[in-house]
Design a protein around this nucleic acid. Structure first.
Lengths: 231, 231
DNA sequence: CTATTAATATGATATATATCAACTAAGTAT
DNA sequence: ATACTTAGTTGATATATATCATATTAATAG
């Protein structure tokens, strides 16, 4: 029996991007000669919603958030770890501007690939195009999961969810040094900073996690999962 | 100056699907001989989340909702009118099952296209693949807009938004016969049925809309837009 | 045509979560 | 070292919205 896709609120799949392996040597060179490597420091905007989408972004190193900004504030669509393509959604003829912003959580290295070159190669190399479709869809499904969490779970569930995601998908450890502030954690789980603090304390008091400043250790993953599923 | 993408909570773009025009005659025939036309009546499930994704769905006629179901109930990701491809997100190798369900709001006609044939053609025809990427991305951006609305706007804003969307994108009229029940409208705008009723009444009392049973007429589109933007 | 179920409607109450205020601790700059 | 800003914390209060209860009306079935 195949399992239904997991609904969680975190990030893209764990799989690294493999699409570049499908290019011919010529296409690879074309990409390399039409892209630049740039470093961004913590907090910097890598691309800004509404500006012209002149390039596709590949995150070589770091951790970024993809967010949509509007009159009611900012919504984090997803967070993306290293070795992933980021602004693929901009790859859409009807739309010349980035539909969202990308900001660095930590110092990050990106490769900016000229979008017209990228489009050209897609139009020439169907296997590459297919892999891009795979990536886009995997991303989208993940974001839909986050969509579900943020609209249907209440705060404890959402927070449990984020903690699990960070542990399993980002840091890949049971104990990790949280490089996000409480405020960022709040933004990520869709609630206020004050409530994140209160709820983290509750989790600690209930023996679900151990906490010392920025360090978090999961003590009862099973129960956290349950809270995430039913909270 | 290019405008930033509009944030609204409704549905896919207005553009019809043109991807089939990019097929060779041979590929077109291949699709036709590997697809079936099926009719669904109001309320019926066209495809069910978690079941094997054996086909891509093209909606020839009707109106459907795409929704994700979980322990906390159902989330409508988008609503899709006729002449649009639906289950494209299933087109993803890591995932053999539908990531969401699709249900008919009204009697609908769909063409079910064998997914392996579809994948085969994508892998052969890069222009077609590119157009599919276009469609997927246009859909995704739209759904991100909905994501934003549902998480960041409060109820009046969300309801105003849905009413505007129905008028502008689905019915394309200022006055329309609402074929959704209050309950469905509630599900769509992410609130309870009771509140939809109360809020519609408020809109009516405030002279924003005219209402007679299922018929809705927009009287002050400008103010509705404002409520949607800032509510 | 009546019975039954579903849709619409309205008021009272409950509750999750935001907001506000105030205070401490920890960085950061002068 | 001292001022100053930002992050973390806690408690009191406000509020949007859900929940519950209960009619009323419309639709559907027997």
């Amino acid at each position: 029996m195949t399992k239904a896709p997991e609904i969680n609120s975190c990030t893209v799949g764990i799989d690294k991007c493999i699409c570049f392996d499908l290019l011919t040597q010529e296409q690879n060179e074309l990409i390399n000669s039409n892209s630049v490597d740039v470093e961004f420091s913590k907090g910097e905007t890598i691309c800004k919603q509404g500006t012209f989408a002149t390039h596709i972004i590949y995150l070589s190193e770091g951790l970024v958030k993809v967010h949509m900004d509007g009159t009611q504030g900012s919504l984090i669509l997803k967070i993306i770890p290293n070795e992933h393509l980021i602004a693929l959604t901009a790859l859409f003829d009807g739309n010349t501007v980035f539909p969202y912003s990308v900001s660095a959580y930590v110092r990050s290295k990106v490769k900016l690939i000229d979008i017209s070159i990228f489009k050209k190669i897609i139009n020439e190399n169907a296997k590459f195009a297919y892999e891009i479709i795979n990536t886009i869809n995997s991303n989208t499904i993940q974001t839909f999961g986050r969509f579900y969490c943020l609209t249907h779970k209440q705060s404890y569930g959402r927070l449990a969810d984020i903690i699990l995601c960070l542990s399993e998908r980002i840091y890949k450890k049971q104990i990790f040094e949280l490089l996000l502030t409480r405020k960022e954690l709040a933004e990520l789980s869709g609630m206020t900073t004050e409530n994140v603090i209160r709820m983290l304390k509750k989790f600690k008091d209930d023996g679900l996690i151990e906490m010392d400043g920025k360090s978090i250790k999961l003590l009862n993953k099973g129960l956290l999962k349950k809270i995430s599923d039913y909270g």
